[in-house]
Nucleic acid binder design. Structure first.
Length: 257
DNA sequence: GCTCATGTTCCCCT
DNA sequence: CAGGGGAACATGAG
């Protein structure tokens, strides 16, 4: 699930469940999810700390707590589960225990990861691999991002170092709404196409964020891409399915030019 | 058994 | 150096 809208939903969950609360314990840490610390290091660093407001940069969730920060990436199957208590689920990779319940980081496929930053410099280093969050990219900045890019639009939109947060679904959705072929070279768009694409990227994100996911609306590509012989919700043409930039890409061959 | 999956990284070519 | 292709990672679901 996790693209920008999903992680924004996780940020809201974290804010509701953990912000302002003190960590009583950290349980069930799967060491293979840890990128720069050990289960003991993580548990010791967080125990007794009080979480502050969580932030998000692209698909990365940043949870500051009294001078340290917990960073979470959800990969393709990560999510949060809040519960009063209860048995550990097979895919729970870390449980934050509070007085009023537990917030579990659940991740079936174990992509993604967990980082611990002890200081600002360390935090910046981890965030540094990511470009600006897509929701903070201005219209003018957008032109600069596409400039001189030799790769396809699909590849550039999904490149987290260019700007962070778009994934396979949101990139396809924005390109479909903008009626632009995902295989085109990023630097080949004229100014009118760039304007439309920017507008559609922002619209897809804005419309999706309240749901905390990319909604499968009937009027959206996302609502049709799941089916094997999907039909374009706008024109009724048979949707095309092709690997672009290493990912299954769905588009309307009749409209996307 | 086989294919595919909302992500990222690394290696080898061109 | 910039990109593309493919594999790997781990675990299902259909």
């Amino acid at each position: 699930m996790p693209e920008l809208p999903d992680v924004e939903g996780f940020r809201r969950t974290f804010s509701k469940r953990a912000k302002g609360k003190r960590v009583r314990a950290v349980h069930g840490i799967d060491s293979s999810m840890l990128r720069n610390t050990s289960p003991q290091g993580l548990a010791r660093a967080l125990k007794g700390k009080q979480f502050d407001s969580p932030e998000r940069q692209g698909k990365l969730l940043i949870c500051p707590a009294d001078g340290v920060a917990l960073l979470l990436h959800f990969g393709m199957t990560g999510t949060f589960v809040w519960c009063a208590s209860g048995p550990r689920h097979d895919h729970d990779r870390m449980t934050l225990v509070f007085d009023d319940g537990e917030l579990r980081y659940r991740n079936m496929r174990k992509f993604g990861g967990i980082w611990l930053a002890h200081e600002q410099r360390e935090l910046e280093q981890i965030r540094g691999r990511l470009g600006p969050d897509w929701q903070s990219v201005s219209r003018k900045q957008f032109d600069g991002l596409l400039e001189r890019r030799k790769a396809s639009l699909k590849a550039v939109l999904m490149n987290q170092a260019v700007a962070a947060g778009l994934g396979n679904l949101t990139a396809d959705e924005a390109l479909w709404q903008a009626r632009i072929d995902p295989r085109r070279k990023a630097s080949s768009l004229d100014s009118s196409e760039r304007r439309i694409l920017y507008q559609k990227i922002q619209k897809v994100l804005r419309d999706s964020v309240p749901y905390g996911l990319v909604p499968a609306k009937r009027t959206w590509l996302t609502g049709a891409r799941g089916r094997r012989n999907g039909i374009c919700p706008r024109c009724g043409a048979r949707l095309e399915r092709e690997t672009v930039a290493g990912r299954t890409t769905v588009f309307c061959p009749a409209e996307q030019r």
